[in-house]
Computed example of a mutant assay.
Amino acid sequence: MENTFPFKIYSIPEHLRVEDALFGITANVESDPALEGYFYLFEKYGFGGGGLSWEEHITTILEEEAPALLDQIQGFSTPATLLFYADSEEAVRQFMQLIVPIFADLGKLNKYFSQTDSSDFFE
């Protein structure tokens, strides 16, 4: 798979799978130094910047751009970690095609945030 930054993709071992999940999509938003700038950008717009906040924004993007994909991807994030489980490699590929162009570039993420209404988000 091409560049997935700021996300990491992994295959879930069979004995650790939750429901139909075959893959994990994660970002250690609290402890990865490469993601420090993201925290400040989220904070600039009044968002928490933790895994739950990332999940909320990503889910919103998916609801608008590919709502059917939400049937294949489930979020299980914590304040420190973004975590989605995906049921197929195709679901991961679609997720990456939609989300990486926004989240891989702080300038593009800034533009996305500038067009959001912060009152629509909880985290």
Score class of each variant (00 low, 15 high):
118 S>C: 12
24 G>T: 00
82 L>T: 03
117 D>P: 02
90 E>F: 05
99 I>G: 03
70 L>D: 05
9 I>V: 15
68 A>S: 09
92 V>K: 01
44 K>G: 09
119 S>F: 02
56 E>Q: 08
116 T>M: 12
39 F>H: 06
51 G>H: 06
24 G>Y: 00
19 E>T: 10
104 A>I: 07
62 L>D: 00
61 I>Y: 00
116 T>L: 10
51 G>T: 11
49 G>W: 04
119 S>H: 13
50 G>V: 01
2 E>G: 14
112 Y>I: 08
33 P>K: 11
53 S>V: 05
95 F>H: 06
24 G>I: 10
50 G>M: 03
67 P>R: 07
56 E>H: 11
20 D>S: 11
65 E>I: 01
5 F>H: 05
25 I>F: 10
20 D>E: 15
94 Q>C: 02
113 F>E: 04
110 N>Q: 13
77 S>N: 04
83 L>E: 13
104 A>V: 06
22 L>T: 02
71 D>M: 10
123 E>C: 13
37 G>E: 02
68 A>K: 06
106 L>I: 07
40 Y>M: 14
89 E>R: 14
21 A>V: 07
56 E>R: 09
89 E>A: 09
75 G>W: 01
66 A>V: 00
92 V>T: 00
86 A>I: 00
45 Y>A: 04
83 L>H: 10
2 E>I: 11
56 E>V: 03
84 F>N: 05
34 A>Q: 11
79 P>E: 12
66 A>W: 00
71 D>V: 03
27 A>I: 04
89 E>Y: 08
119 S>G: 07
21 A>G: 14
18 V>H: 14
44 K>W: 11
61 I>K: 01
9 I>H: 08
21 A>S: 13
59 T>L: 11
93 R>W: 06
49 G>A: 08
16 L>V: 07
28 N>S: 14
115 Q>G: 12
87 D>Q: 07
73 I>Y: 05
30 E>R: 15
114 S>H: 04
91 A>Y: 07
93 R>A: 15
24 G>S: 07
18 V>N: 07
74 Q>I: 13
111 K>W: 08
113 F>H: 12
8 K>P: 04
65 E>Q: 15
94 Q>R: 06
99 I>Y: 00
76 F>N: 10
81 T>D: 15
25 I>S: 01
53 S>E: 05
89 E>S: 08
32 D>F: 01
78 T>E: 13
4 T>F: 02
2 E>W: 09
2 E>A: 14
66 A>S: 12
37 G>H: 14
96 M>E: 08
54 W>Y: 06
2 E>Q: 12
37 G>T: 08
73 I>R: 04
113 F>W: 09
90 E>I: 02
54 W>R: 05
7 F>A: 01
84 F>T: 00
40 Y>C: 04
123 E>I: 10
104 A>M: 14
9 I>M: 10
96 M>W: 02
26 T>W: 04
88 S>I: 08
29 V>I: 07
104 A>Y: 03
72 Q>I: 02
43 E>G: 10
115 Q>D: 04
71 D>P: 02
27 A>K: 07
93 R>V: 05
63 E>T: 12
27 A>E: 02
7 F>I: 00
106 L>W: 06
39 F>R: 15
113 F>R: 08
37 G>N: 11
58 I>P: 00
24 G>C: 06
114 S>E: 14
27 A>S: 13
105 D>T: 02
116 T>F: 08
80 A>Q: 09
80 A>W: 05
33 P>Y: 01
